[in-house]
């Protein structure tokens, strides 16, 4: 019996100390990890969307609470005037969740570019959505709220398909359409907050 108690106590203490230590480290690194995710996961997509901006969109960002979740919006300035906004939306792809960064011009409400942030699509097939320029460019210039046009050619829309990866291409289009809905619902707030970056 004594031996039993000793074993239980040893394991409990060990696990408690380990848990305590890890939660301290977790809390103290949380901010840096968020920053790193921003830089490595969302950063490349944002930079590819906002090629000609004069500011650093990763620095100039704001958050809006949507459905009890903080969503980051990244602001791009053209010749010093804040005009572009990029934010992430998701949809379910062929291999799992798919994240799409969508850039919108707030004056015309047109899409200026899209970029894939996270995906787990089949390498060499669905994964081409992240690199296929023709596919990504086919979103550019369409109003982000135009539900009918942000669909694949097969679905009577304007988006170019990716050969052999229709499910992935369709998922990206779905994510962009969701971004359109989100943009429309929060339009006033987004525009005010973007405008606040002019100085």
């Amino acid at each position: 019996m004594r031996e039993m108690i000793k074993m239980v106590v040893t394991l409990t203490i060990l696990a408690a100390v380990a848990g305590g230590l890890l939660s301290v480290v977790k809390i103290s690194t949380a901010e840096r990890i968020d920053q790193a995710v921003l830089e490595f996961v969302q950063g490349p997509a944002i930079i590819s969307i906002m090629e000609d901006v004069s500011n650093d969109p990763l620095e100039d960002r704001f958050a809006i609470e949507i459905n009890e979740e903080e969503k980051n919006f990244f602001v791009g300035k053209l010749n010093g005037v804040p005009r572009l906004v990029a934010f992430e939306e998701g949809a379910s792809g062929y291999g799992g969740p798919l994240g799409v960064m969508v850039g919108v011009d707030i004056e015309t409400d047109n899409i200026v570019g899209i970029g894939i942030t996270t995906h787990s699509e089949t390498p060499g097939v669905g994964s081409r959505a992240a690199t296929d320029i023709r596919f990504q460019k086919s979103f550019v210039g369409i109003p982000v709220t135009d539900d009918g046009r942000i669909r694949l050619g097969e679905d009577d829309g304007d988006i170019a398909n990716i050969g052999g990866a229709t499910i992935t291409a369709r998922a990206v289009a779905t994510a962009v359409r969701r971004a359109g809905v989100l943009y429309q619902e929060n339009q006033t707030e987004i525009k005010t907050k973007v405008a606040a970056f002019s100085n």
Binding site: A18, L21, K26
Partner: peptide, 18 residues
């Protein structure tokens, strides 16, 4: 003990060498 240090490495790597 080992798992604790592994998670430690994982968190530190995420923070400093993403």
């Amino acid at each position: 003990i080992i798992a604790t240090f592994v998670i430690l490495v994982e968190l530190l790597m995420q923070a400093f060498a993403y």
